[in-house]
Simulated scan of single mutants.
Amino acid sequence: MEKVLVTGARGFIGSQLCKRLANSGVELHAVSRQPPADVPAWWRSIGGDVGYARRATAIRWWNVDLIDLQATRELIRTVRPDTTYHLAGLATSTSRFEMVLPILQNNFLTAFNLLLVTCESGAGRIVLAGSVEEPDSPNPIPCSPYAAAKGATSAFARMFEALYQTEVVIAKIAMVYGPAQADLTKLVPYVITTFLRGERAKLSSSVRPVDWIYVDDVVDGLMDCAHASGVRGRTIDLGWGKVCTIREIVRRLRELIPEAPEPLFGAVPDRPLERVLKADVATSCKLIGWNPSTTLQAGLRRTVEWYRSRPGA
């Protein structure tokens, strides 16, 4: 039986990955700073099938702060996973100065510690959650502390693979959306829940084109990264491969929520250094055989239906 470790297991992508893995017959270990007090309730909250609730209770939860190197070392030596999905971190593109250190610690140091102890122990493959916002050669300046931390993580991951033969794959993920996203400051859940309350969403100019990807497609891609051959040290883009402006997303959400009032564009400032970023899906397909399957319209419809069905929506 494959041993699988998921960090950031209570997060948006991590929880959906756990839902998929729990139904796949693996020995699943989940890491978070605070495991859920009621696992079956948590399972249902992320859309887990009630018929499989017993699988959710079989998840082995570990209360570990991955910033702590020794705690991370003990975790990996105890579990000895065949596959580690590293999804823990602060998912924010804020440029506020006071967030630089927390983002460095939670996004870079946690990944570095995992790379180090995995190399020490000879554990299996690590799939690192990167970002399409990472700086590249045409655009070497990171657009946020988050992008800088992700870029540094990817650089160290490639070094660990090249020098020490650590088995690592970097998944550069585009803008993820979908049901059960608890962080209501993220654009799609913020706009949906604001519209459902009959309020006007306060937005930036919203002219930025973005590559949007449905969470189930990301889970598929991560699992393909974990099991594909010939991709050690490679970077795999997980996105739709097309861009759509934020204004267009908001327009589509208003069509799905007819009672929604007109949004307030320009009510908040645009973030500096924003770039147009698009996933290279053709190369991802060649490397791991993955293609996204959920259209933007279908994904937005499912997401609206999920939030509409929640109590108090």
Rank of each mutant, 00 (worst) to 15 (best):
P189D: 14
E248Y: 08
K186C: 10
L128R: 01
L90P: 00
S293P: 02
F108C: 05
V243G: 09
I288G: 09
P140W: 06
C18G: 11
A260L: 03
L69D: 13
Y214W: 07
N63A: 15
P40Q: 06
P81R: 00
G312P: 04
S137W: 03
F265L: 02
W61N: 07
S205G: 12
G241Y: 10
P35G: 03
P36E: 09
G25T: 12
V207Y: 05
G124N: 01
F97G: 01
V281W: 00
L5M: 12
L17Q: 07
S144T: 05
E305A: 14
A149G: 01
E98A: 02
R200V: 13
D65E: 11
H227Y: 11
A88W: 01
N139H: 15
I288R: 05
A180G: 08
Q16P: 00
N107C: 11
V188F: 07
R158A: 13
L5Y: 02
K278A: 09
C225P: 04
R251C: 11
K19I: 05
A22Q: 08
D136T: 13
Q105E: 13
V268A: 00
T193Y: 02
P145H: 01
F12V: 03
D220W: 02
T153L: 08
A147C: 03
Q297W: 03
G299P: 07
E305G: 05
G47I: 10
F265I: 07
S15N: 09
A180C: 15
